[in-house]
Design a protein around this nucleic acid. Structure first.
Lengths: 342, 342
DNA sequence: AACAATCACTTTAACGTTTACTAAACTACA
DNA sequence: TGTAGTTTAGTAAACGTTAAAGTGATTGTT
């Protein structure tokens, strides 16, 4: 065991060619005669040659690699988006370096630095919920490394963005509820200094204002995008005995938190308190009750992000479309489908 | 924009030191005087130096990187294991290259080759459900690259394995059911040519035999580890009008498939057909009804795998423990907790 | 005072490729 | 038959870093 890897020069020595000829042959370079290519490839295969990608990258000054930064992995939305990014990368013949910020701005920064140090050719990122300083993104741009922001994006001018039409999606969900008869509507909004929080909140406001409904500040909660936040916010309102008729949550995990909390205090979703959320997940239809939501097509998001990034990599000077909005879809299951309060 | 990255020689030129001095200083090499280190680091910071990891890896002959291969990402079990692996990697100061086989043996092989070409220092892998040829794993071993198999492992001698005690876990679930009074028990077993399928099936058999219950071959279904398989298997039995009282599924997604199918044909889980599964997920307690299961502690699995891999990397000659079994835990929620058939 | 050890740096070479340039041999064409 | 072009290969240099070996000055030891 521990057989040293075969390198180009080993093949060269064996076949009495120069190293460069071997290198070219294995890459089907037109410099080399077809018959020679065949011979060399055969020998390479036989000798178990595997290229040293590190050396190749250093020499060729390109890494064939793109970096991805996400806040979470064990989360349906990101999980499926990442999966789709990987699928696309395979088609483009690119490698992916995935990093996870764990919603931590410092980690995020460190990861981006590492990605730059690894000479990734581009970056796809969904920023953490606590990212406030955008200098690092500007540095990436300054270095000439294409970067595409997906879903969660910072507020910077002239950046490439792929996101869902958050405002419109939220608006449609709330308008749907209002038309059912809902008036006392809460919004668990997460953080509004990040676009998804801000836009979804705006959509909520749009709908309420359009229909002349007042917004109760106590019913607009802030704090995060995870279950914890949903659970806590619900409990806070519950303890104050100040529950609305409907809760619109900024993400799917927040809704799960509400489910847990409601279950814990013995309230029935739909009968006692209704809910609708932004974001979908495969298991949602199996929840009790299945939750209605605004669906964000993760595959489309990932696909568009990859395409946009690739076009930026191929022609760096070309700016073109840099703000892609993917439409959402209102999926009605068994929550927020009828209004049956007092 | 597009400012060229600063390199060691740039700093060297500016400070009138040799490149190597700069390199050593930035790595706190004892060769360099503390005052010099300070000066150099200051300049490096000021000039915005970021090391070229590719060059560093090539030169130092180590990549500080470990490769991970999983069948899926958007799956709670793998998602949380991966997340934990990333967390650990951060502690060990290693980078992770994550690849996804999508349950495809060919992709898996390709990914492993890429990882070797990228000179990862070790590999953590959970093999695909269709992997039958193990040559590539032997090649990895032959190359002297430490590899640790997690959860889904091939049948090869003398490999390092971290897994849950599948057989025992399944046994305990089934014995629990039998003690409740269940006799007509089906097992949706996935593929039994892979360990998790084989072992869980064995645990099922153990329990049935211990309690003198016959195993109905029609109730032992094979075919996969995903929702599709659960759905199809259920439907097959349903159409034959040959449903058991309890179904034990090999994974959590298979159970979800059963939920969907049962819901579709209007059967009530628990009342009409009961279920218990191997594998846990955060949302499971919010299912209707919350499903009882055999929990596999993903964090422990990931942690052990990383530790084992690291120890193999640090001392390659040392063999030591190479088959770690993590105990499971039976979590009883609202399925399979009473027997109420005829 | 002589020699060894230590300190703080420098020089040289290498990691395994690829890119850019060069060269020889053959081909085609007028 | 000479020249331009093509085909096929080789040579030299570079990518940015680190490992290993070397150097001169200072310090320590007996």
């Amino acid at each position: 065991m521990n057989s040293k890897p075969v390198k180009l020069s080993d093949i060269a020595k064996r076949l009495h060619y120069s190293t460069v000829t071997i290198s070219k042959a294995l890459r089907n370079h037109p410099d080399i005669a077809p018959s020679t290519i065949k011979k060399i490839k055969f020998a390479a295969e036989e000798m178990g040659y595997t290229p040293n990608i590190i050396a190749r990258n250093l020499s060729s000054r390109k890494s064939n690699t793109i970096g991805v930064v996400v806040p979470k992995i064990a989360h349906f939305f990101f999980g499926s988006m990442i999966e789709e990014i990987y699928n696309r990368a395979l088609e483009y013949n690119y490698e992916i370096i995935l990093t996870v910020s764990q919603e931590n701005a410092e980690r995020e920064k460190k990861h981006i630095q590492t990605l730059m140090a690894m000479k990734v050719e581009g970056i796809i990122i969904s920023i953490s919920q606590e990212t406030k300083n955008y200098d690092i993104f500007k540095l990436v741009e300054a270095r000439g490394i294409p970067i595409v922001f997906v879903d969660r994006v910072p507020k910077i001018d002239n950046i490439s963005i792929v996101s869902v039409d958050d405002r419109d999606g939220a608006f449609r969900a709330i308008e749907h509820a209002i038309k059912l008869g809902y008036k006392k509507i809460a919004h668990f909004a997460g953080y509004t200094d990040i676009n998804i929080g801000r836009e979804r909140y705006q959509g909520f406001v749009d709908a309420m204002e359009k229909h002349g409904l007042p917004i109760n500040p106590e019913w607009v909660c802030h704090g995060g995008f995870g279950e914890r936040f949903g659970y806590d916010s619900f409990m806070k309102l519950y303890k104050k005995n100040n529950l609305p008729d409907l809760i619109f949550t900024v993400t799917y995990p927040v809704a799960l938190g509400v489910y847990s909390a409601a279950k814990e205090v013995g309230l029935k979703i739909t009968e006692d308190i209704d809910i609708i959320c932004f974001g979908n997940a495969k298991v949602q239809s199996l929840l009790s009750p299945p939750i209605s939501c605004v669906n964000q097509p993760t595959d489309l998001l990932a696909k568009s992000a990859m395409e946009l990034l690739m076009s930026k990599i191929k022609n760096p000077e070309l700016v073109g479309i840099n703000n892609i909005k993917i439409p959402t879809e209102l999926i009605l299951r068994e929550t927020c489908i009828t209004f049956n309060k007092n």
